[in-house]
């Protein structure tokens, strides 16, 4: 739910309410990660590092369902729909454009909910390894999750051998989104 403002509020206030949106969304990714089979067998340090480098990318996948690439609108969980143009005032134009493109490609694959969830688990454990101590353990977990994703997708679409590779090709897209946009500024009012 994102209380993005009616037009009467200043873009600063709009920006603050938009920034507030991220906090619950990030917490949900942390809970999601803990539910991934094997994630909590990693060291606490490596769990934190993977979350720090992968959460933005998981959020990008989760937010895709809010984006309507055809209408160029975003509908928040509170039902409020905004056009791309109105959201540009928040100064996130380039991120929003990239999000529309990414969500169009992902939506075209037509994944089921459980396939999307497993894909998000793969996204998280495929995140940047620079801070990881036990790389082998993370790579083993990634391999297991990719195997599970492949068998789930191929079992449902035995005659479509292109979907799985197309899905894995979204991983570099997400990494680019992350490198280009995770340094965007948020603003929090401190009274």
């Amino acid at each position: 739910p994102c209380p993005v403002a009616p037009s009467s509020r200043s873009s600063q206030e709009v920006w603050e309410s938009f920034s507030q949106c991220f906090t619950p969304a990030v917490k949900e990714v942390v809970e999601f990660a803990k539910s991934i089979p094997g994630f909590q067998t990693l060291s606490q340090h490596d769990q934190v590092m993977l979350l720090k480098s992968g959460t933005f990318q998981v959020l990008m996948v989760r937010f895709c369902s809010l984006f309507d690439p055809k209408e160029r609108t975003v509908t928040f969980l509170n039902g409020q729909t905004y056009s791309l143009a109105s959201l540009r005032a928040l100064g996130m134009g380039s991120l929003l454009d990239a999000m529309f493109d990414f969500s169009e490609k992902l939506a075209s694959l037509g994944l089921e909910q459980d396939e999307m969830a497993l894909f998000m688990a793969v996204v998280l454990v495929s995140a940047d390894r620079s801070g990881i101590v036990e790389v082998g353990a993370v790579e083993q977990l990634q391999e297991n999750l990719i195997k599970a994703l492949r068998s789930l997708i191929t079992s449902r679409r035995p005659d479509d051998s292109t979907l799985f590779p197309k899905l894995l090709l979204r991983l570099p897209d997400l990494r680019t989104l992350n490198n280009q946009h995770s340094e965007k500024l948020l603003a929090f009012r401190i009274d």
Binding site: V48, K52, T55, F56, E183, R189
Partner: peptide
């Protein structure tokens, strides 16, 4: 006067994750 704390998305995400793991220690 209202003051503002500005941080990057990445830092905001890191902050929430660190807080969560510290709380559940």
């Amino acid at each position: 006067p209202k003051t503002h704390r500005v941080m990057t998305l990445a830092d905001h995400i890191s902050h929430i994750i660190t807080q969560d793991f510290a709380r559940n220690q």
